[in-house]
């Protein structure tokens, strides 16, 4: 198995309280992997540790068997949509072009090939017609697609996305899912933080089940077992599964139809 991401004994703490404890796993190349777990289970922190945005108290991460610094241009990071101010004076194109910024070309002007790549990325997320639109005038789903276009413009091999499905419309959800499949077919690796257990099974090939500690990692069919989910979600799942049973008995549909 070719490994895209490996974490070894990774521990991260905020104010001496561990958020991630001794995380040890490997994720294969060319798969769509979901990192799932309840709120506050350290999913976002795990991504930040991988991207070098928070310092681990111990342990390390390796990407394609190397340090982040050596492979940075092969990695693309999509932060949470809410992490930026969407009233910022910039157009969709301005933001997507940021995907072409590197520390080596920061003082150079943007050239035509950068623009072509950005246009192509916008096309892939069906946002080309919005390229001159101010980002303050976008819907939540459109904002997410802009972020993904920026990431595509980086032309990376490994994409790390933080909650791309939160608060997006059905069209965006479908667009993102199609993109993920397309990326997979091109041999790219995608790692997605996701909090919704119900959809996780449809979206991902591999699952990392997290709750401060690593609960389980592997192909999704091995992971979606009641005992493992119970361990990760604890009491919360209890309530949920009871509600689920109730709904099943009464014959309500669990999800709204699109």
């Amino acid at each position: 198995m070719e490994v895209a991401l490996e974490t070894h004994n990774l521990t991260v703490s905020y104010n001496r309280r561990p958020v991630l404890w001794n995380i040890d796993f490997k994720i294969p190349v060319g798969q769509i992997t979901g990192i799932i777990g309840p709120n506050g289970s350290g999913k976002t922190t795990l991504l930040k540790a991988i991207m070098g945005l928070v310092k681990p108290s111990s342990g390390y991460c390796k990407l394609f068997d190397q340090d982040l610094k050596q492979v940075r241009e092969r990695i693309s990071y999509v932060p949470q949509r809410e992490s930026v101010d969407w009233d910022f004076p910039a157009s969709v194109m301005d933001i997507v072009l940021m995907g072409r910024y590197k520390s080596s070309n920061l003082f150079k002007r943007i050239n035509q090939s950068d623009r072509d790549i950005a246009v192509e990325a916008l096309e892939k997320v069906n946002m080309l017609e919005f390229s001159n639109r101010q980002i303050s005038q976008l819907s939540g789903g459109q904002q997410q697609r802009v972020f993904i276009a920026r990431s595509l413009a980086q032309g990376a091999d490994l994409y790390i996305m933080d909650e791309p499905f939160v608060g997006v419309d059905a069209a965006t959800e479908e667009a993102i899912l199609n993109l993920l499949t397309e990326m997979k077919n091109q041999g790219k690796t995608v790692i997605v933080v996701h909090h919704d257990l119900q959809t996780a099974k449809d979206y991902f090939d591999w699952i990392v089940l997290l709750n401060t500690r690593l609960v389980a990692v592997g192909p999704k069919d091995d992971i979606f077992r009641e005992d493992l989910l119970q361990e990760a979600y604890g009491g919360k799942l209890n309530v949920l599964s009871k509600v689920g049973d109730l709904i099943k008995e009464k014959g309500f549909s669990v999800r709204e139809r699109k």
Binding site: K48, M51, G52, L53, K69, R72, I75, Y77, P79, S83, V84, D85, F88, A90, D94, I95, M98, Y101, K102, S103, L106, R150
Partner: peptide, 16 residues
Amino acid sequence: FLTTFNEEFAKALGIA
């Protein structure tokens, strides 16, 4: 522009 709009993304790009 980049560091003002999205500092975390800039850091992830390896920008100081």
